[in-house]
Each structure stands twice: as C-alpha cells, then as structure tokens.
Amino acid sequence: MDLSLFPNAIAMTIDEFKAWSHEVVDELGRSSGIKRLVDKATAPIWSWAQRNSLHPLHFGIACCALEMAAASAPRFDAERVGVVYRSSPRQTDVLLVNGWVTKKLRPALRRLYEEIPDPKWVVAMGECAISGGPWYDSYNVVQGVDTFIPVDIYIPGCPSRPEAMIDGFLKLQEKIKVEQQGTFLDD
C-alpha cells in the first residue's frame, strides 16, 4: 500500500484525493482477497450473461457479410444463440470481421475495435480475414486481421457457410465460459 502521500492528504486537490483513495481501496481489496472472492462469486453470472447475448457489430465487408445476413435469416436464425446485430460499436461486444481488410480500411477498423467497450472479442470470418486468402499477393490487402487486432475465433471457409458461422459463435461461447471474467475485469 502506497502511503507516501498520507500525511499530506489534507493538502491534496480533489482529483488527487480521488486517485489516491481509489488506489488505497483497490490495494486493500486485492491484498485482503475480497476482490478475488467477489470475482469468483460473480464470474459465473457475468459469463452466463455475456455468452448468451453476444451482440456483434453490424459491419459487412465482403462475401461473408452475405452469409452473415443469411445466418440471421429464418432458415439459420442465429438469434437462437443470442447473436443480435447492433449498428453502434458502443452497444456491441463482438467485432465480426467478414472480409479482406485493405490498407485504406485498416485505421477505421482499428478505431472501431477501440470504440467497443470491454469485454470484447474479435471473430475473423473467412479466409481473407484470417490470412489474406485469395488475395495473398495483393499490394493493398492486409494479410490477416490478426496483424493489428487480437483475434479470438477463426472461422474458415471461402465464404464460410452460415452453419460454420453459428458454430464459430458457439465456440466463442465456450471460450467465454472457460475464461470466467468477474466484476473486476482488469485482473
């Protein structure tokens, strides 16, 4: 616990005091084990809620975007597993990259990724997003989306079928179930 400022606490500005007190409480929770206890108790609840309401960003890039649309259509109905598309990145938790990423798009996609609040996951759908796919010798295509954002699930196929996409989301649910992030996500 950092108590170096303790005798001078009375002379702190309000912002300094907030930062200092937050640090003290944080340290107290961690060292006493309360944080871990709360994490352990709440993690199954959060994990259950997160994995059953995966909201990907409504962001179609290329061929796989049509399969993404077909997956939410009546025959495949991805909404059964909780996949509902949202148009604003602030309301989503999954970034579904479904196509090749060009050098002109890369900054925009990186920015979209950063706009999504934590916890967030990235799914690379189709060969182009995984490794560049058929455009391996292009001068303008980024060879794989994992070169600039971390990817959790890869769905192969060119284009991936809707069943494959739903299967990928089920795999992502398993991953969230195993990860079990608690209330204090930074731990």
């Binding site: 060009t102 001068y139 295509v141």
Partner: peptide, 9 residues
C-alpha cells in the same frame, strides 16, 4: 475501402 488490386493480380 475494398480495393485489392484485382486487375493487377
């Protein structure tokens, strides 16, 4: 945003 140099490839 989707230009991949198809004609060159």
């Amino acid at each position: 945003y989707l230009h991949r140099g198809w004609e060159k490839m």
